[in-house]
Amino acid sequence: MTSPKTATLRGGLIQMALKADTDNDPEVIRQAMIEAHIPLIEQAGEAGVQVLCFQEVFTQPYFCPSQDEKWYASAEPIPNGPTTKLMQTYAAKYKMVIVVPIYERDDVTGIYYNTAAVIDADGSYLGKYRKTHIPQVAGFWEKFFFKPGKSNWPMFQTQYCKLGVYICYDRHFPEGWRALALNGAEYIVNPSATVAGLSEYLWKLEQPASAAANGCWIGAINRVGREQPWDIGEFYGQSYFVNPRGQIEKEASRDQDELIIHDMDMGMVKDVRNKWQFFRDRRPDTYDVLTRSE
């Protein structure tokens, strides 16, 4: 059930505040965010991190409090855009899997997605996950910017682990966690941009519950600071690793740029799943109501 590649998986999560004013061109902001991330990427690589993940749309502000077409210019193609290509070089240099959450432009259709590219430890592009659930509420006008993805819950067989990706608002929907686990994921990352308020309570409730329900590790990433001119609240950091029993084992600060590193005992995945047998005891034949559209 667990990958034979490693019994212990060294994960890294990077949380960060915005590094350029939002009145700048999106390319200027991208360059500033990349420049700020590189020392932490190198630190992760030198520390032997095997799977590294950044926050949601990590090269840009969380621009969804606006409905400004300016931000369309921040989208990039995947895998042939500059950010994905650059991260492929760092993945290969450090033999490190990197999950790269960016704003994606599909050049075939001209449609935009909230996406995470997955790069293997040899620098090869494994594929992408597109955010499935898109909110449209005050301060989070995401449907203006993102089309809902339909990625079919991919499990990425990396050199070190069976990896899944869920993005921010997705975490409120238990069905996707389950689908990722059923497709084989043993470690799932959730890059996010979430502000203080009701969500801060949910931040340490939903993902530990999902880890326990699915017998998997989860790495949760949130940005930090306040972003002007919107100032919808404080991005409260507190990125963390939670084990398959739902226990948070390592947590970042609330308000600092930070790389956190943690060694995950991947043997816990098999142990927990064998003990609880939630997958065996599922009753999908009784769940028709879950797929009704009305």
Score class of each variant (00 low, 15 high):
33 M>R: 03
184 G>A: 06
100 V>A: 00
87 M>G: 06
65 P>Y: 00
236 Y>G: 12
141 W>R: 11
203 W>C: 04
192 S>C: 10
143 K>P: 14
166 Y>E: 01
226 R>I: 13
222 N>Q: 13
176 G>Q: 10
15 Q>H: 09
202 L>W: 07
88 Q>E: 11
259 L>W: 10
267 G>H: 01
286 T>C: 14
262 H>G: 11
188 I>H: 04
97 V>P: 01
29 I>K: 07
215 G>T: 00
190 N>C: 13
171 R>K: 15
287 Y>Q: 15
282 R>D: 12
140 F>D: 12
151 S>R: 10
271 D>F: 00
157 Q>P: 14
220 A>G: 05
57 V>Y: 08
58 F>D: 06
69 E>G: 09
223 R>G: 15
261 I>R: 13
285 D>R: 07
9 L>D: 02
144 F>R: 03
113 Y>N: 15
198 L>E: 14
196 A>I: 09
166 Y>R: 12
174 P>L: 01
166 Y>V: 12
248 I>M: 04
139 G>H: 02
172 H>S: 10
63 F>S: 02
53 C>E: 01
146 F>R: 08
230 W>I: 14
205 L>H: 12
174 P>S: 10
176 G>N: 08
144 F>M: 01
170 D>V: 06
90 Y>H: 11
32 A>K: 10
249 E>F: 03
162 K>M: 09
196 A>N: 15
199 S>I: 02
22 T>W: 03
130 R>K: 15
190 N>A: 05
156 F>I: 12
272 V>I: 09
155 M>L: 06
110 G>T: 06
98 I>P: 14
209 A>I: 03
130 R>M: 13
255 D>E: 11
235 F>G: 06
245 R>Q: 09
19 K>G: 12
12 G>H: 00
113 Y>S: 10
